[in-house]
């Protein structure tokens, strides 16, 4: 039985999400594993794809409803933080620009703004 992390990788590599979708708790668990590291290239691909898909992942069951932002933005927020921690922000410049401009949760916009600023500073240096 593939792990959720493996299923996420397959979803990106083969464009084939699991037929039953992901359980919310397992999806969050897989992101926590990536946060702890080490982050492999396939994981980076997953995170970049999660942002490209605007956090939309096929889910099964009823995901818990966060209070401060929608689940899709929460997924994007987690992906941003993990990629920032891994120093891979250059891969998601367009997503950062989009998130800073779109009417998303203030916390997510602020995070995107900070990371975009950091990326630009790094590129100038």
């Amino acid at each position: 039985m593939p792990t959720t992390r493996e299923q996420l990788r397959r979803m990106v590599a083969e464009r084939k999400p699991p037929s039953r979708g992901f359980a919310w708790g397992e999806l969050m668990g897989a992101l926590e594993q990536m946060e702890v590291g080490p982050l492999e290239d396939a994981d980076v691909g997953v995170l970049v794809e999660l942002l490209a898909q605007r956090g939309r992942v096929p889910l099964r069951g009823q995901p818990p409803v966060p209070h401060s932002m929608p689940p899709e933005e929460l997924v994007q927020s987690r992906a941003l933080k993990i990629l920032a921690q891994a120093g891979r922000l250059a891969l998601i410049r367009e997503d950062l620009v989009r998130l800073e401009r779109e009417p998303s949760a203030p916390a997510l916009r602020e995070l995107a703004r900070q990371l975009l600023s950091r990326l630009e500073s790094e590129e100038e240096a």
Binding site: H67, L74, K81
Partner: peptide
């Protein structure tokens, strides 16, 4: 009840 999970992912605005 309403539950506001701890950590960065959730909170009360």
């Amino acid at each position: 009840r309403y539950v506001f999970m701890a950590g960065w992912d959730d909170g009360h605005c």
